[in-house]
Computed example of a mutant assay.
Amino acid sequence: MTDTAPPPACKRLAEALQDLRSRTGLTLTALAECTAYSKSSWARYLNGRQLAPREAVEVLCTMAGHPPGRLVALWELAELEWSGRHRTSAAPPLPPPDQPVGGEAPAHRWNTRRRRVLAAAACAVTLAAATWLATFHVTHTGDTAGRTASSAGPAPGCRAQKCTGEDPETMGCAAPEQTRRLGPPYRTRTGARLVVVLSTRCHAAWALAWNTRTGDAFELSVPGGTVEQVKVADSLDAQDPLFTPMTDSGDLTGLRACFTPTASRQECVHVHG
C-alpha cells in the first residue's frame, strides 16, 4: 500500500480507532507503554497511513470498554481493501490469519493474544487510577481495588433462548475470543459477503453481512423459530458491516442465512455447526 489516502473502510477504521483512543484519555506514549505497539505505530494506525493489526483493534476496544464485534468486522473489511483482495472475485475473503475458518484460533496464539489484551487493559486501568489519585490525592486502596475489579468484562446479558431478538454487542456476546464463524463467508452474486457467527459464551448465533447496498436485506432463521432480519436502510448502513439480532443456537439443525438484494432473487445458505 502506497502512502496515499486510505481506502474507505480503512479510513473509517482509523476514525473509529481515534474515537476509542479519545475515550481512553491516553496519549500515544501511554498507549505504547500499555501495548506491544510503539508510539509511531499507533500514530500510523490512527491516521490511517498503516492498517492496524487485528490484535491492536481488540486491545484498544478493551481499553476503551467498547464491544469489539463491529470494529473487528470493520477491520476485516479494511484488511480486504488494504491487501487488494477485495478486487479478487474468484474466491471469498479469507479469515484473519489467527482465526481459521469454522474453528477457534490455535490455543498458543489465543493465549498470547489474551495475555496482551489483558495486560493492556490492566495497564490502562493503572494509568487511569494513577491520574485519578494524583488529581484528587486519594489513597484508599479499597477504592482502587474496586475500580480495577469493575474493569473486568461484565457477564453476558442473555443466554440461549433469552438471547433471541437481542443485539449481540449490547448483550456482551460478540467478544472475538468467544465467537467463531460457522463456515466461510458466502459471496453473493452482487459481491456482498454473508457469514453466520456463533457465540460460545451466549449460546446464540447471528448473521453478519458487508459489501451491501441500500435496499438489500438479510436474515437468519431456524425451523419453527422467528426470522431475524436486517435491511440496509441507506448509504451509511451500506458502508459498515451489519448484523441481525440473535437466535438461540441450541439446535443448529436447519439454521439458514438468506440474502435478498434489491434487484435479484434471494440466496440462502444452510449452516452446520
Rank of each mutant, 00 (worst) to 15 (best):
L60Y: 12
A107T: 13
L51M: 08
G69L: 13
G48P: 02
T24V: 09
R87Y: 04
L74R: 08
L71A: 07
A32Y: 09
Q50M: 13
N47A: 08
L28N: 12
W75G: 02
P68A: 14
L46V: 04
A43I: 01
A14H: 09
L20R: 05
A14G: 06
E58F: 06
H108L: 05
Y37A: 11
H66L: 06
W110K: 09
E58S: 10
N111D: 13
L17A: 13
S22H: 15
P97S: 03
L74T: 01
G103W: 02
P7G: 11
E81M: 03
P100A: 00
A14Q: 05
D19V: 07
P67T: 15
L20V: 09
K39N: 14
R109H: 02
L74V: 02
T24C: 15
A105G: 12
N47Y: 11
P93L: 05
L31I: 06
H66D: 14
S38N: 12
S38Q: 14
A16R: 10
N47R: 08
K39V: 04
A30P: 01
W75A: 04
R49I: 01
V72W: 04
P95C: 03
E76S: 10
L17N: 12
T35P: 04
A56M: 03
R44H: 11
H66W: 13
Q18E: 09
T62V: 06
R85P: 01
S40Q: 14
S38D: 15
A30S: 12
H86N: 08
R70S: 09
P53S: 13
G69T: 08
R23F: 05
C61Y: 11
L71W: 02
